[in-house]
Design a protein around this nucleic acid. Structure first.
Lengths: 110, 110
DNA sequence: TCTTTGTTTTACCGATTAGTTATATAATGA
DNA sequence: TCATTATATAACTAATCGGTAAAACAAAGA
């Protein structure tokens, strides 16, 4: 499966999205990430494996725990894809670019 | 299933993403949307139904055809979700805002 | 009316998914 | 060494998914 499809499939689950949101505030262990959910521990491990396989998180070793870390690269890739649909926003960015060009050239000539 | 999960699940398929990209350039019929793919016609209809159920497209009637139209609202919802992960980008936007404020005030005072 | 074109629906299949329980592995600490 | 804590793996199950072929439906045109 291509990386973007993997990313989107991983995100298409509210439990995994909640885990990522938690990780956006800082690293957390498997136990900490699973605590909010009424799920068995293997289910938590499975969700984290999906996120890891998608490249959305990495893990390190710390004693018995395996703290997880959010990797933003794949989210950035998704952002790039989303860019294709930002017709209105693109228009606004064009306006901003024009605005920037205007005030910049104004500043240079004065 | 919650709307955001439905949106992401619908996007987690390259065929459906390609269809949406096509629709971002304008409405298209079922036949037009299916043409690029080596898939049976019912498979195309199924993919479009997934997109429609997720609220990503709507369809109207035109003679025998059923032209599809991209609906950007759910993509905007996804964008809102993505916002939670834009820590670095937010910093860059802050810098841009500062930059804009600077050159703007400079321009005003001169 | 009959045929053609465009699309949907139905019924089916194999693969994948999300969950479970039970078991294994790994590191710590008594 | 032995028990505890943290996590992963294995084996299983029910449900969902992406595809197919065959049939039905809808509108247009001869």
């Amino acid at each position: 499966m291509d990386p973007l499809s993997q990313t989107l499939a991983a995100l298409a689950d509210p439990t995994r999205r909640a885990m990522l949101l938690r990780l956006s505030h800082g690293d957390a262990t498997v136990g900490e990430l699973g605590a909010p959910f009424r799920l068995s521990q293997p289910a938590i491990s499975k969700h984290l494996k999906v996120l890891q396989t998608a490249g959305l998180i990495t893990r390190r070793k710390a004693a018995q725990t395996r703290p997880c870390h959010l990797e933003r690269a794949r989210l950035a890739d998704l952002d790039d894809f989303m860019q294709h649909f930002r017709a209105v926003t693109e228009g606004q960015l064009d306006q901003l670019a024009t605005y920037l060009a205007n005030i910049q050239s104004t500043g240079e000539t004065e």
